[in-house]
Amino acid sequence: MTPFRLLVVLVFVFSSIAAAQARTVWVDDKIYLPVRSGAGSQFRIIENAVPSGTAMELLESDQNGYSKVRTTKGTEGWVSSQYLSSTPIAATQLKKARQDLETAQAEVRQMQDVLANVTGERDNLQNSESSLADRSSELMAELKRIRDIAASSINLERRNGELLQENQKIRNELEVLTAENERMEAGKESDFMLLGAGLVLGGVLLALLIPMLKPTRKSDNWA
């Protein structure tokens, strides 16, 4: 037993004495102590063969070497003081030490389990941190790609505006050319109509002039 645990036991013993005017004593090693009705061997035995290591409550002691006790069964009687000890016997101390050792071992196992859980949580956090770092890199790359697309979209929009302006300019020029072509086509039709009219008129004139220009035959009688 460690000095600290022994001190705790002693404090508990002294506290019990102050509170109940009684203290705990133990039957000494390897004996069976009879409890008698009076302070002497001539008194009858009221509880026989209390084994060594049994805790009893000490009520009083006399000058003849006897002590009045209360057993765990509630029996009050007298026993020889020489077989009583103010501390537990070695077997009881050993049993208590073993119990303390088992308790300490259980606490150690519990702490080992806690440590294993904490270590597992730490590893999980490290893995999560690594995953978050990878995800952050992916998001940064995605953000750069989106920015590039946005810049390309702006350039495309500007180029689209330029193409629209060029298209409108070409349309205007096409309309001008179409109007000019229509005007020229209309002029050609007018020229063809005038030419046709001239040819018709010329044909009519020729038809009128040719008979007039043809020499007239003299009749045979005139010859």
Results as ranks from 00 to 15, higher is better:
R217G: 02
V11N: 04
I149P: 00
Y83V: 01
L33F: 01
A141W: 05
R158D: 04
D28C: 13
W78H: 05
A133R: 15
T119A: 13
L156E: 05
G187N: 13
L10P: 01
L208M: 10
A179M: 10
S85A: 14
L59W: 06
T178C: 04
S86I: 08
L201D: 01
V200S: 05
A55D: 06
E173Q: 14
A197R: 14
L84M: 15
S153R: 15
I17K: 13
I210Q: 12
K95H: 07
V204H: 00
I46S: 02
T87C: 03
L174C: 10
F12M: 07
A186F: 06
D113S: 15
K169D: 12
R44G: 11
N221D: 06
I89D: 03
M1F: 08
E142M: 08
K144P: 00
L143Y: 11
N48V: 00
L58V: 06
L58M: 15
T75P: 03
I149S: 12
G38S: 09
V79C: 03
A150Q: 14
K68P: 02
M184G: 00
R5S: 06
E173K: 12
I31V: 14
A150C: 03
A97E: 07
A223M: 11
A106V: 01
E60H: 07
S136D: 05
V118N: 09
G77M: 02
E157C: 01
A39H: 07
I31E: 04
E185D: 04
K218R: 14
G120M: 10
A223F: 14
M212D: 01
I146F: 08
L199T: 04
Q93P: 01
N181G: 04
P211Q: 02
S190Y: 11
F43P: 02
D29W: 09
N127S: 13
L201N: 07
Y66E: 02
D29G: 05
L84I: 05
L59K: 15
L205H: 02
P211D: 00
R122E: 09
S152H: 08
T178E: 08
V79Y: 01
D148G: 04
I149G: 02
L101V: 01
Q63D: 13
M184Q: 09
T87Y: 11
A19F: 07
D28W: 06
V8Y: 02
E57H: 13
Q93M: 14
L139S: 04
A116F: 13
D123R: 14
V108G: 01
R70N: 07
F192A: 06
G74K: 06
A91V: 04
S130Q: 14
L194T: 05
K30D: 10
V114N: 08
Y66C: 03
F43A: 07
V50S: 03
G65W: 05
A197T: 09
L84W: 06
G120T: 06
A19P: 00
I170N: 06
P88N: 00
L59D: 03
E180T: 10
A18Y: 12
S153T: 11
K73E: 09
E173L: 13
K96S: 09
L59M: 13
K144E: 09
N160G: 03
P215E: 01
V204W: 03
S131H: 12
N172W: 05
E129F: 12
V11P: 00
E57I: 05
F4P: 00
R23V: 05
Q110M: 08
I149A: 14
Q165T: 08
F4A: 14
Q105K: 15
